[in-house]
Amino acid sequence: MSLQELDRSIVHDGGSVSAKADEYLRRSGTAAGGWLSRYGLLIAVLALWQAASTAGWINPAVFPSVGAILSALWTGISGGALLDDIAVSLQRSGTAFAGAVVLAIPLGLLMGQVRSIENALDPVLQLFRQTSALALYPVFILLLGLGEASKVFVIFWATLFPLLLSTISGVKEVDSKLIEMARVYGASRLTVFRRVVLPGAVPSIFVGLRLSATTALLLLIASEMIGANKGIGFQVMNAQYNFQIPLMFAAIFILAGLGLLSNYALVFAQRRLCRWSDASN
């Protein structure tokens, strides 16, 4: 039980039943208010879009009504076509993201700890980081062909660097006074790493994971616009070519949803793992 919870339970135990009911109403009232202030504008924009499209203030051929988009979304999903696209896209970005995690976190931990390794790799890293992954995509296609490999690799490439750099800075920003404290108690280098450096770097690693997950979806679309015949990114382009504008928006909505979902999943994991950190709140 945290101290705040302790305080709250003291307040509760002291109050009468009606005070508790008031408290409950007040809190659900603020919860509804909070929800409205958070999502009210979004709902208003969607409502305005719907109204503008049906009333003909904007060209419905370019901006179909929200209803038409939702129905295209439903047709695509219930028919299974969009589900296939989602699966293919998730596989591409997921593979690339997993590869980046497997390489960047151990390498970042090592680079943050061992100065000579960092010094040796840093110039290369800075050069690669400053080169747009999209500019390198043609190179990857030349090397790996127009198939899955070049798509996955370009996403991997772009997701690698934010995660690597956050991991390195996470390790380096661990308070040296805490490391000295552990040493005074006789901790070996390995113990210091395991019990002080690693947990201390976790919040920063999560920042990197969230950046990388966003980048993975961003690059997914770009990679699927060239030489793909499946995937959400392909579907956005393809629907536009075929003038299936509601389907195009449906695919864009799915992308936004995937982005939100992956971010929420990471935020959730971060809250579980770094309850102690201010960054997780």
């Binding site: 308070d175 006074k177 805490l178 000295e180 404290m181 552990a182 005074v184 108690y185 006789g186 901790a187 113990t191 019990r195 002080v196 947990p199 201390g200 976790v202 770094c274 102690w276 950190s277």
Partner: peptide, 24 residues
């Protein structure tokens, strides 16, 4: 050694921090 700053590990509870030295 006791330093001017408490130098507690923020991810451990009071119990975890106090047991830290012995565990190490």
């Amino acid at each position: 050694v006791i330093f001017q700053e408490p130098r507690l590990l923020p991810w451990l509870t009071v119990l975890g921090n106090v047991a830290f030295g012995l565990e190490v």
